[in-house]
Design a protein around this nucleic acid. Sequence first.
DNA 1: GGTGTCTTCTTTTTT
DNA 2: AGAAGACACC
Length: 740
Amino acid sequence: MALSSVEDILGKLNPVQREAVEYNGGPILILAGAGSGKTRVITHKIAYIIATRQAKPWEILALTFTNKAAGEMKERIRTLVGKGADLIWMGTFHSIFARILRKEGERIGLSRNFTIYDEEDQQGVIKGVMKELDLSAQELTPRTVRSRINRAKDALLGPGAYAEGAEDFIAQRVAQIYSEYEKRLQAANALDFADLLLKPVRMFRSHPDLLGVYQKQFSAILVDEYQDTNHAQSVLTDLLAARHRNICVVGDDDQSIYSWRGADVGNILGFEQNYPNCKIFRLEQNYRSTKTILGAAGAVVSHNRRRKPKTLWTSRGDGEVVTLMKMPDEREEVLGVVRKIETFMAEDKRQPRDFAVLYRTNAQSRGLEEGLRRAGIPYTIVGGIRFYERREIKDVLAYLRVVVNPQDDFSLLRIINVPPRGIGAVTLSRLKELARQQGLSLFGALKLAGEEVSILPEKRKRLKQLNSVLKKYGSSRKKVSPGELARGLLDDVGYWEYLEQDSTPKGEDRVENVKELLRGMEEFSTLHAEGNLEAFLAEVSLLTDIDSWDDRKNGVTMMTLHAAKGLEFPVVFITGLEEGLFPLASNLDDPAQLEEERRLFYVGATRAEERLLLSCAFRRRRFGGQYGIPSRFIDEVPTEYLETEGEDVTWGAAFSPEDITGTEKTYQRIEDEYSMGEEGDFRLKVGQTVHHSRFGRGRILGKSGFGEMTRLVVDFEKSGRKRLLLKYAHLQVLYEDEDS
DNA sequence: GGTGTCTTCTTTTTT
DNA sequence: AGAAGACACC
């Protein structure tokens, strides 16, 4: 391959892009609007740095948010500078710092074979802690605890610091759980995602000599999607850049959509203050979309108050208007999308791969999937239930984790009775007790279980068997390939027979999935010569669904708006544009969150190159049936860009009496359900007759709380008294129909 | 200790 | 609507 000259590298850039690539005078902030050639600038900048010998490839640190983005960038750099590209430190924040931790973590008491817990594992540990500490999960779910802990970690707060700032009761409890959670992770030699960032910060701060080594090495640091960095990430890059001060961050505050995960737009907005001598480049020419699409997207996002004003422009033509499809219900919405796809394929010679159908929540993919399948249009779904999150896959991975890291109690717990070997709660508690007494991990206790008198002889035998299998593979793991090892292990424990017991399609899927996993492991070994089991597990736990999305496959792509960031398609549908769904109900009250929803719309709309279609349904079945009001974002699209198909539908007092089950008297449903919010509350007075989809008709006896947390006591005619949370009850107010 | 049924709870987005 | 947990029965 002929390598590019410096002029080749610069030649394909517009003046601003070129300036940004050539600039070599310290910190750089590149504000890159959607479709402005951001990736091109980063890749060309890196190529330029290498070609002009500002730095060696291995002195460059380039951080992204998905493996896919990193892989694609590496590929593009390779075409510019050749194989040197492979030596660049390029990857996601999490994978790069996991790698550094594996190498250096012993300094902070971390052994190389640590396990990475995903959020499900994390939540499992938290659940266990909460059970043991007997902190009721009523107003404090493991889920909220998890997110609080993660948020704390993202902000670099350990359990101690968090406890100090814990003012209210809930936070104090979280602090307690957090502290115990940390102990367990440490004992299990495990790290969660947030630890992969927090631990390196700690390590670098406590070992300046080590920090010095990396500071010296990374003479050029580049960060993609800087608007999505959290505090820990910005601290990390600041630490590493402190010596050379050669840091280049790229991002777009309008595309900040991960604040719920701890991302802080303040990082990009405050970069100038943080690096006062920084040079700012603005990429405002969009190469992707038509004027219409850009105008529509820009008009919507301009409703946000907290943003840097900017004007994206394009030399492209107006193109087609944005189409809005107003549909009576979600079924019709799906049919509408399908019909459009068929029309465009027939008339405009579009391929299935030209289309993306975007939605706010994964749950919406079901209906769409069904519609496309019926129409015989090939498709791929990105996201949803991810491969590595399937139960059977996690089971197998748990076995492998224990083999690699015997201290991993949580994983051992997962598989100790899978397949069933007669180990129930009693035996388990004896085993745990044994571990506690001896100060051992669960695996340590398992070794002794064969001689433990408090455990039933029969169980002892089974535990002994399990122990010997795990031991066998633990000692052979360095000699055989990951795939081979897994195959043997699964044979030995009888996992296949266990899966095959279930002969339903679902069970067959499971077998297929595990086979697929084994294939993946074998492929991994051929790809990475040094690919041992540790490496495989490490990689697998940091994989996301978008990473495995194959854009060469010719199918319609379905995914959430979040997953679509960074991608582009000729035709884009944004579906489910209804108040409460997009923007999502829980983000409706908080202006900051609402602005984030709006940015999400902006991100979705700017994925489109030629055509953008919006759709909303006036009735959407979100269990029980809720009615849709078109999203405010639709109103924010200037009418000159918009062409509407379909009509407004008012569902209301149009239900026939038969719709209400088991009532001998005729009642009429009123326009809406009073599932949440204040507006409906006034009708929900004590004494009011209401209808519940399951319990039928009843009378309100009592009411407490307010807003979403309103609790009701209802006396149902058929099923008696029930306590209900208004938020979930979906009650309908019944009025006596005078005419009957 | 396993299995089946009933009840309760959950619905955001994901490295 | 569907999953996970609780509970009861085997």
